[in-house]
Design a protein around this nucleic acid. Structure first.
Length: 280
DNA sequence: AGTTGGACCTGACTGC
DNA sequence: TGCAGTCAGGTCCAAC
């Protein structure tokens, strides 16, 4: 599913494809995905007639910074099953197409979303941190703001389990189920630990694991796991799923020590995957 | 303020 | 073959 590495992959591929094009028209085919706005018309008003200056990302969201007399930002949240493609106008519409952005060169940016957990919205200006979508968001884990010292402060009042805290966008932006599992494994820490119970060396390992796992996942264009329909802008699956150590590997032997991977229930029917021997 | 549980959504899968 | 039930998870909301 799309987390930071998948969103970053889409950002990197999308920018050279659409940079400099003007958005001529917006069509919202599944109104639910524009729920951040009072109406699809409000979204349309903020993006039509504007030129795409560059692509950005905040956490799991892909951003298109638009320029005109009144700059704005188009925000694409991929949710669980969101896909972004750039297509010729005559390509048949996928059943799950939720929004279509017509570009000045005739092509279209299409947003598709099978489960409709994703969405598109737009805000005036380019000041991402001021946008309601990202209110209270934690630092980007690959930025200089993310440090072991930051983790110490952020974890201090967090008595919840490590994994759900890692997935809290207000703590760190961009981490979801796959990479929370993998980061805990790489750090050698059980996801069931209390976040505020970590020692300094543990936090440092977690910090390093976070940066390594996310960086490597980006290099491999993200993960398309078993039941996952994630594809990049060119329709290609990611390649990092082959390098996952624990996510969705319940009962399978640990790739380091051979011990069967354990699954511990988490909130909302989710599960944390971890190696009882490698993770303490 | 932080924690916890449920709801939303639909395709894939399981069991009868 | 069909159908009900379960699972998956990002994010929001409500209750404690």
């Amino acid at each position: 599913m799309p987390e930071l590495p998948e969103a970053e992959t889409i950002r990197r591929q999308l920018e050279p494809e659409v940079q400099g094009e003007t958005i001529r028209r917006v069509r919202v085919l599944i109104p639910r995905i524009a729920r951040a706005h009072p109406s699809p018309r409000a979204l349309s008003r903020l993006v039509t007639g504007r030129r795409i200056a560059r692509a950005g990302r905040r956490g799991k969201a892909v951003l298109l910074f638009l320029n005109s007399e009144k700059p704005s930002t188009l925000i694409i949240r991929l949710g669980m099953t969101g896909l972004v493609r750039v297509t010729p106008p005559d390509e048949p519409l996928d059943k799950h197409t939720a929004a279509v952005f017509d570009l000045s060169d005739g092509r279209q940016i299409r947003f598709m979303d099978q489960r409709q957990f994703g969405g598109v919205s737009a805000r005036p200006g380019h000041d991402v941190d001021a946008m309601p979508e990202f209110k209270g968001y934690g630092p980007e884990p690959l930025s200089d703001e993310f440090t072991p010292d930051y983790l110490e402060r952020a974890f201090a009042r967090r008595s919840a389990q490590l994994e759900p805290v890692l997935m809290d966008q207000k703590v760190i932006a961009g981490i979801g189920k796959i990479y929370a599992d993998e980061i805990c494994f790489r750090a050698g820490l059980r996801p069931t630990r209390r976040a505020n119970g970590l020692t300094g060396p543990m936090r440092r390992r977690l910090w390093q694991a976070t940066r390594e796992v996310l960086t490597e996942a980006i290099e491999h264009r993200g993960s398309t796991a078993n039941d996952d329909n994630y594809r990049d802008v060119y329709g290609m699956p990611g390649e990092f799923q082959n390098r996952l150590f624990v996510y969705q590997r319940t009962g399978q032997p640990c790739r380091v020590c051979g011990t069967p991977i354990k699954r511990t229930p988490m909130r909302g029917g989710r599960g944390m995957h971890w190696c009882p021997k490698c993770q303490k």
